[in-house]
Amino acid sequence: MLGIDIVKISRVKNASTLAKKILAKEELALYKKARKPQEFLAGRFAAKEAFLKAKHCGITSGIKLNEIKVLYQRSGAPVIVYQGEKFTVSIAHDGDYAIAVVSL
């Protein structure tokens, strides 16, 4: 199963409020170190949305975005951790956009 999502970075407003809402505790720690927090947040948002799409359920399905954790592997490549299980994700940024693809 595949899921994809794209986010316009400039749409991310009130970043710190949004961050608290959609990021898990581990992600928040990474967010605080991010050089470009807005871009970081847009990428995470896209990854979480893409995950929901791959699962074939929408944002109203009851799965909270902060339960879908987008963490780093040792290589620095992202990985989605949901309920202890790992899923493949790829995130990219360019100019105004962040995009993510998830495969289940």
């Binding site: 990474l30 780093y72 592997q73 040792r74 290589s75 620095g76």
Partner: peptide, 21 residues
Amino acid sequence: VVYRQGFKEVGTGSTFNLLGH
């Protein structure tokens, strides 16, 4: 490029915990 984020951590002295590990 997959290791780019990882390099940011080890390239700056393996002290900054950029990957959350």
